[in-house]
Design a binder for these strands. Structure first.
Length: 594
DNA sequence: ATAGGGTTAG
């Protein structure tokens, strides 16, 4: 029988104990085993060992116990770069990215040197905060510390610049990267998609696909679908959907939610529904996408049914869900239901309504002509300037629609005060004056605009036919060879809609351009009407036409809309033109897709 | 050895 020397025995014991603790720390998935591991480490005296403590910190971070992680960190005699970075990442996960920045500064003052992991975490914090200034500072440090060619650091930089709305800088970093992977390509695609440059997003995706280095995964496809949605490109969206199915990502609920949203925005809400119904466990986002999708089509009751369904399935709605619900009620003329839901938000669901919800309600009341109530409500809401622009802009449109010049004037004043969307305010106010026959005011407003140099970009819309998009601008009809024919046709349509009780709004003929003489002529046509006429005139049989522009429907409008559908015998759907200001004249005819 | 990057709804 041989005996090992005592010291060697001790070493083996310590090493075994060490592994045992490590295994326990790696596997602890609940707070009880974490605490027990913690006390074991404490008793053994290993708490002063940085490596063991780091394990414990990560354990608390995984369990979302950031305060416990912090306490442990503060007691460490010698935290190293991993300890610092772990804690920073913990704060980012816990929704306190600001604290991560603070820690970085503290770390900087101590003698511990940051590494690539630290920078990736820091950049992520800046990205969440959308803090471009700090982001640039961190970028400078990345250069100084020599991580400019690190894949992960650069991918997070691309993402950070994208989230801070500096797409050009994102692209610069991306172009300088010496090697890229799916994540870096996805970051670049997302940067474009989230900054209203969907066509660039698709271009990057085509480039990635052409390289055939790697397959697109569900992250990338979700972003690509998002880009198709923002462009209203159904054909590209369907191709992306095909890729999703081929790559077996159709069971991913994030991808599915993106598809639901894309189909709704591209004019095919029935596809949205099909995709939605295949999601095994829809999240609050999946439900909200479908609720919003239905709302856009004036299917208010469908939205409300979906809401009931999600409540029954114990899925908690959030503030955005309620924006969707209030939108649905607003666009379907379900005022009482809308007001009920507004009340229930706080009482039943513990969500405080804020400016965006009240804006929906102002819209809802305004559409149905309850302008006095809408006005009183608008005045009572505390808003930031950008929220104010939306709020007063909403009221302005409603007062124009119902010919309440007094409220229109007040709303425009507030809108102009908010210093945003000023040109839109002038145009709408001018339309309100014109509607009331107050031509002198129209003229003086126009000279005011000339004097202050306000310029209104023309609204545009487009139809997608086969794989091409055709864009129309407000005012285009004048130059169109069939212009007169169109105008006649549209007048006739409007008459027939009025007979059915249509009261005005997007479908009706409105003045678009105050630069033109404000006489009772059509100086411009909103494009959905133009495209509608387009559909009547020269689209070959068997081609599906989809018109993109927001159709804000009250119940009456919905009726009218059905009537138009009967007349033109085609399916088309419409989306919000204001979200697509990135369309430039002549740049939107795209025949190619990947 | 322990720590890091990309996705969906208004």
């Amino acid at each position: 029988m041989s005996f090992l020397p005592f010291e060697m025995n001790c070493q083996i014991f310590i090493r075994n104990f060490f592994y045992c603790i490590q295994r326990q720390l790696r596997n602890c998935n609940d707070i009880i085993s974490a605490t027990s591991a913690h006390s074991k480490v404490f008793k053994s005296g290993f708490l002063s060992d940085t490596f063991t403590s780091n394990h414990l910190i990560n354990c608390y971070v995984r369990l979302q116990k950031i305060n416990d992680a912090r306490k442990l960190f503060d007691e460490m005699p010698a935290p190293n770069v991993v300890s610092w970075t772990s804690l920073m990442a913990g704060y980012v996960d816990a929704g306190q990215p600001q604290m991560a920045l603070t820690l970085f500064r503290e770390m900087y003052r101590s003698s511990v040197v940051p590494n690539d992991f630290t920078f990736a975490t820091m950049i992520n914090a800046c990205s969440i905060l959308a803090d471009l200034q700090v982001g640039k500072t961190v970028h400078a440090h990345v250069e100084i510390f020599g991580f400019r060619s690190n894949l992960v650091v650069c991918s997070s930089l691309v993402d950070m610049y994208g989230k801070c709305n500096d797409v050009d800088e994102a692209r610069r970093v991306f172009d300088l990267m010496s090697c890229r992977n799916v994540v870096s390509w996805t970051s670049m695609i997302t940067a474009y998609a989230q900054n209203a440059q969907g066509h660039h997003a698709l271009q990057i995706f085509r480039e990635f696909s052409g390289l055939m280095l790697d397959r697109p995964n569900h992250f990338m496809l979700a972003s690509v679908i998002n880009a198709c949605a923002s462009l209203g490109r159904l054909v590209s969206g369907k191709v992306a959907h095909g890729t999703v199915i081929r790559r077996s990502h159709d069971s991913n609920d994030v991808v599915a939610s993106a598809l639901v949203d894309m189909y709704a925005k591209c004019g095919s809400v029935s596809y949205s529904e099909k995709v939605f119904r295949r999601i095994p466990n829809p999240s609050v986002i999946s439900y909200t996408s479908m609720i919003v999708g239905a709302a856009k089509y004036g299917l208010g009751n469908t939205s409300l049914d979906l809401f009931e369904e999600m409540i029954d399935r114990r899925i908690k709605p959030n503030d955005i869900t309620f924006v969707g619900i209030l939108h649905a009620c607003s666009h379907s003329g379900l005022v009482d239901e809308g007001l009920e839901h507004l009340k229930s938000m706080h009482v039943k669901h513990g969500i405080m309504p804020d400016a965006k919800h009240y804006t929906c309600v102002v819209d809802m009341l305004g559409r149905t002509g309850r302008l006095e109530e809408a006005y009183q409500l608008a005045k009572s809401i505390q808003v930031e300037s950008d929220e104010g622009a939306l709020l007063w802009g909403t009221l302005l449109s409603a007062s124009r629609l119902h010919g309440r010049v007094d409220i229109a004037v007040e709303a425009s004043k507030r809108l102009i005060e908010s210093n945003q969307q000023v040109s839109g305010a002038y145009v709408t106010l001018s339309n309100a004056y014109a509607l009331a026959g107050q031509w002198e005011n129209v003229h003086s407003l126009r000279s005011e605009m000339k004097r202050t140099g306000v310029y209104k970009e023309p609204g545009c819309s487009w139809v997608e036919i086969k794989d091409s998009s055709y864009v129309f601008y407000a005012g285009d009809v004048v130059s169109c060879p069939q212009g007169n024919k169109l105008v006649g046709l549209l007048r006739e349509l409007e008459e027939r809609m009025k007979e059915r009780g249509y009261v005005g709004g997007s479908i009706g003929l409105v003045f678009v351009d105050v630069e033109e003489e404000a006489k009772e002529e059509i100086v411009g046509l909103h494009s959905e009407r133009l495209a509608l006429a387009f559909g009547l005139i020269n689209i070959p049989k068997g081609v599906t036409i989809r018109v993109m522009k927001n159709l804000r429907m009250c119940r009456d409008c919905h009726e009218a809309f059905k009537l138009i559908s009967d007349i033109v015998e085609r399916d088309f759907m419409v989306r919000d033109v204001n979200r697509f200001h990135h369309f430039e004249k002549g740049s939107c005819t795209c025949r190619d897709f990947w």
